[in-house]
């Protein structure tokens, strides 16, 4: 049972307001070790904001976030140290344009984890091979396709050996024929028991790979359950109408 699984992230009444607009209105969520949590919902529902609050790229305006039991929203907590353990993948890849792929991958491990260049390169090369881009280390980001960039971005996060991976609409900026290759990598991660939080519009992925699906709307979690519960037996009206539109 899930009772013995360690809690990785827990949010308590998480709130975020931009000026007068409340993007998050109190979100409680617990993510345990090995969980694959998929967050779906209409645009403007606060799902990306929620994800970005988890590593405080967005500063929450209320509530608390516990990472490994430590309150990372408290004043004294060193967010940079926690971020090393939270990998993030962005919609627009955000590879460092001024560096080769290999330098993108070893920057964090060498500057933050104290690995030597050789150690970091070895680690990065293994992961590059795993996503099928082993020969791309010397290229610059501008020389890659969107799907390749996103796979590199995933590898960059993995090189830090994070405890949780946050995916912020990782396939939304991709050409349709490149979505598959990125989802394939993510599926591979999920199979290997990587703890993942995925904000996505890919309902197929949510259904197939997600263990828990969260439906967010209007800054709140409206419904939560297994993929079967969410997709085959939706309870609330808004989820029903959302699914009717996207499926």
């Amino acid at each position: 049972m899930s009772a013995e699984k360690r809690v990785v992230i827990r949010t308590e009444g998480l709130e975020k307001a931009f000026r007068r607009i409340k993007a998050l209105k109190g979100v409680d969520l617990t993510i345990k070790d090995g969980d694959v949590v998929v967050i779906i919902g209409p645009s403007g529902s606060g799902k990306s904001t929620f994800l970005r609050c988890l590593n405080r790229l967005e500063e929450p305006t209320g509530g608390k976030i516990f990472f490994n039991g430590e309150d990372i929203t408290s004043r004294g907590s060193d967010i940079n140290r926690h971020r090393q353990k939270m990998g993030m993948v962005f919609q627009h890849f955000n590879l460092f344009n001024n560096m080769t792929i290999m330098d993108n991958l070893i920057l964090g491990p060498t500057k933050l984890l104290g690995l030597s260049k050789a150690e970091a390169t070895e680690r990065a090369q293994k992961l590059l091979d795993r996503v099928g881009l082993g020969d791309r280390g010397a290229n610059y980001p501008s020389q890659l396709s969107g799907g390749q960039k996103q796979r590199i971005a995933i590898v960059r996060a993995l090189c830090m050996e994070p405890e949780v991976m946050l995916f912020d609409e990782p396939t939304s900026a991709l050409d349709p024929e490149m979505v598959g290759e990125v989802l394939e990598v993510m599926k591979d991660l999920a199979m290997n028991k990587t703890t993942m939080v995925v904000v996505t519009h890919e309902m197929g992925f949510a259904r197939e790979v997600g263990e828990r699906v969260i439906f967010m709307d209007d800054g709140q979690i409206m419904e939560e359950g297994t993929p079967q519960e969410i997709f085959d037996n939706p309870q609330c009206e808004r989820l029903k109408s959302f699914l009717a539109k996207v499926l």
Binding site: R83, Q84, G87, F96, K111, L112, A153, R156, M160
Partner: peptide, 19 residues
């Protein structure tokens, strides 16, 4: 996004600026 990506792997502001 470049700043966000740098910060997301744990670099601080000045490190992200520099590298």
């Amino acid at each position: 996004g470049q700043m966000e990506a740098g910060r997301s792997i744990g670099l601080n502001y000045l490190q992200t600026m520099r590298y």
